[in-house]
């Protein structure tokens, strides 16, 4: 535990000194990606997603989330509510399938689609690839919640990316992304995401909870909480369609 804290502190100091001046954005985006990338192992957690829509009861979904960043794959299996139990997602690269255990059918979907009719997108569960997908258009110094930040505007290098333009509030001292705004191709604000707290898992950082606010549908908001994180190696077969069928048998 002590060793981990020393290593983490060391890495923050290193990061802070390296990026104290005008940032080298290619390096900075790469570093942000690395901080959340479990490139040498697997990651799993339990997700709780609570969605609020005006005039409706809160929607709660609990699911198990498995991620293998080195192969750009993730799997999500619904645990609750009961009527959705066993429904699941499999994402491999840019492809995503949804599985309905009742009809035993897969539906091809897109990372750009909303996750379970919430304010989250399927792509929110992919690993970060900011350096590969974006270039920094502009940035400014600022403060958010007392912390010194860079507010950087990123534009996608490729039209296929789920979010064409995003603005990140990046803490200068540890490079954690505190807040994001996602924009459409036409420049319209679509969503705002706040990540007030991260959890460190084996030297990597994943949000403890995040809040997503829909900018188009006023009053719609979603909180996602990641609990019971694990980096234990998962069987290869988890990241297959067969797994989603088998887990329901």
């Amino acid at each position: 535990m002590k060793k981990t804290i020393i290593v983490l502190t060391g890495s923050f100091i290193l990061a802070a000194s390296a990026f104290a001046q005008a940032p080298d954005w290619n390096r900075t985006l790469g570093r942000i990606d690395e901080m959340g990338d479990f490139e040498n192992g697997d990651f799993s957690a339990e997700i709780t997603l609570v969605s609020q829509k005006p005039g409706e009861d809160d929607t709660v979904i609990q699911a198990r989330y498995f991620r293998r960043d080195r192969d750009d794959k993730f799997v999500i299996v619904m645990l609750k509510p009961d009527v959705q139990r066993g429904q699941g997602y499999l994402s491999i690269g840019d492809d995503l399938w949804f599985y309905d255990p009742e009809s035993r059918k897969f539906a091809f979907s897109s990372l750009k689609d909303s996750f379970q009719d919430s304010d989250a997108q399927n792509s929110d569960f992919s690993s970060s690839s900011l350096r590969e997908d974006y270039s920094v258009e502009s940035y400014a110094d600022g403060k958010l919640g007392g912390a010194d930040i860079w507010a950087a505007v990123l534009v996608a290098k490729d039209k296929g990316v789920a979010v064409p333009k995003r603005k990140l509030w990046i803490r200068k001292d540890n490079l954690l992304v505190m807040k994001e705004e996602h924009y459409s191709l036409s420049g319209r604000l679509m969503r705002t995401i706040a990540i007030p707290k991260y959890q460190s898992v084996s030297g990597k950082f994943v949000p403890a909870s995040m809040l997503i606010v829909d900018a188009i549908k006023v009053g719609e908001r979603t909180q996602i909480t990641f609990a019971s994180p694990s980096v234990e190696k998962l069987p290869d077969s988890v990241f297959t369609k067969t797994y989603l069928e088998r887990v329901n048998q």
């Binding site: 804290i5 540890n174 954690l176 460190s200 084996s202 019971s228 994180p229 234990e232």
Partner: peptide
């Protein structure tokens, strides 16, 4: 705020 919590002892994977 936005700082990482201390490193977690990760749970065994379900």
């Amino acid at each position: 705020q936005a700082a990482p919590a201390p490193a977690l002892r990760t749970a065994p994977a379900a």
